[in-house]
Design a protein around this nucleic acid. Structure first.
Lengths: 144, 144
DNA sequence: TATTTGTACTTGCAAAACGCAAGCAAATTT
DNA sequence: AAATTTGCTTGCGTTTTGCAAGTACAAATA
């Protein structure tokens, strides 16, 4: 779980944290759902293995991208949320979506979001960020 | 080298292609240098192993992100370049840089580029894209 | 022309990471 | 009290990585 910086390059340093096949999917789930339990992540379509999930959550927490907190309803549950550092990955996630929109066939429900982004990227980002700052929003279902 | 799509999610599909610790560093080198030989990639600070480099170049070529072409000066050399699909990763790379700028200490020479991006992101992207369309530009040195 | 060097890889192998299934402890539900 | 849920951990076989060495061909050098 230690960070091995391969170089001083910002791209390289970023990849050292979330440059694997799973980390950004965890971030994605949190962007759509605002907060997730361990089990929520396991329900995602990609079917991450539980040990890999545990190690990625640890990595992302260690590097300040996500935080763990007590679930208000139960001591058995844990809530994972994005930190500001994690929320700041939103523009990056948007660009991935736009790139994918150009080169893949996207699921229909995702196309609507893309259309909104393409209409006014800055407005979309601002709206999303405001959503994150409000802490008492209901947990929306995960869309992948 | 086969593509195993884990789900229909655009983020996931994108990560299936370049979501590892090395692919975007290859793309980075090509963004800065416009064209690289096999040896150029090996010279980068992160010191990628030759077998990993070969497999990533193959993967990126198979998936249409880069292309191989003959070197005009020598049959022994091979030139790698970004395709349009690869060039379209520029906005993504920019966002990675901006995120890293906020959360890492960047090398001085990279800060200048970031400053230019932050002044006018759209203008920067357009300028870069124009650079790529012009095919007879000199090869600039790699900055990491 | 023979030999050395450069370039783009491939191969072998040990170490690390991954992926799957099972296990486990604490909390919660029945 | 027993069964289930939740968030992990553990074992273990498979895959990927990383390092060093090797190879084939082109090009430069002697």
């Amino acid at each position: 779980m230690d960070i091995k910086k391969r170089s001083d390059c910002p791209i390289s340093s970023s990849l050292d944290i979330w440059g694997d096949k799973w980390s950004l999917l965890i971030v994605r789930d949190l962007m759509f759902s605002k907060q997730c339990t361990y089990g929520d992540f396991l329900k995602s379509d990609e079917k991450i293995a539980t040990n890999i999930l545990a190690s990625r959550l640890q990595m992302l927490e260690t590097n300040g991208v996500i935080t763990k907190q007590d679930h208000p309803d139960s001591k058995a549950k844990v809530l994972y949320k994005l930190t500001q550092k994690g929320i700041d990955l939103l523009p990056l996630m948007i660009e991935i979506n736009l790139w994918a929109d150009k080169y893949f066939t996207l699921p229909q429900e995702r196309k609507a979001v893309i259309a909104e982004i393409e209409k006014d990227k800055e407005a979309f980002i601002k709206k999303q960020i405001v959503d994150f700052l409000d802490d008492d929003i209901p947990v929306s279902p995960i869309i992948k």
